[in-house]
């Protein structure tokens, strides 16, 4: 119950900040996602009521754009670049390796909510391909060996905290 109230209050503030104009819907949802790390249903309903946009239209936008996630995401977001340059440099093998290592598919979050795996089409760092962006850090010239190393390191850091 408390959580819902929390969603609602923060969402209201976000909508107000954007002035409630209907064209701001995408920007509003982007801010909500930034705040909660995903788009909670309660928040979307609040947006619908406050902005006077039918829930169906809000849900259309939320499901159309890749940037939005309807489920809570993990503490770390692993974005594998599958742009053309990275693809020809072997990104799919790196993807397989991450899937194996984290036991999840792209779009999924692992059991302990540590990692969410996502694919992205070109992060504009093709010189480093294959590239993986974890949270905001770029990891270039990825190898399968590096996948193990990086994930183990993050896990170790997490355990220490």
């Amino acid at each position: 119950m408390k959580k819902t109230a929390n969603f609602t209050a923060k969402t209201k503030a976000i909508v107000k900040k954007h002035g409630g104009d209907r064209s701001a819907l995408i920007a509003v949802l982007q801010d909500i996602q930034e705040t909660f790390n995903y788009l909670p249903k309660e928040a979307m309903n609040t947006v619908s009521t406050m902005m006077g946009i039918p829930a169906s239209r809000v849900y259309e936008v939320a499901t159309f754009y890749n940037a939005f996630s309807l489920n809570p995401r993990g503490k770390h977001i692993v974005k594998i670049c599958v742009g053309t340059a990275c693809h020809v440099r072997g990104a799919s093998a790196i993807q397989d390796k991450f899937e194996q290592k984290l036991l999840i598919k792209p779009g999924e979050t692992n059991q302990d909510q540590q990692f969410t795996l996502e694919l992205v089409n070109c992060v504009g760092a093709c010189a480093l391909g294959p590239v993986v962006v974890i949270d905001t850090e770029y990891h270039g010239q990825m190898t399968m060996n590096k996948v193990d190393k990086i994930i183990n390191e993050i896990n170790k850091e997490g355990a220490q905290q």
């Binding site: 995408i26 159309f64 754009y65």
Partner: peptide, 8 residues
């Protein structure tokens, strides 16, 4: 400025 939502 408008930020896209990730759609080619």
């Amino acid at each position: 400025i408008n930020k896209g939502g990730g759609a080619f």
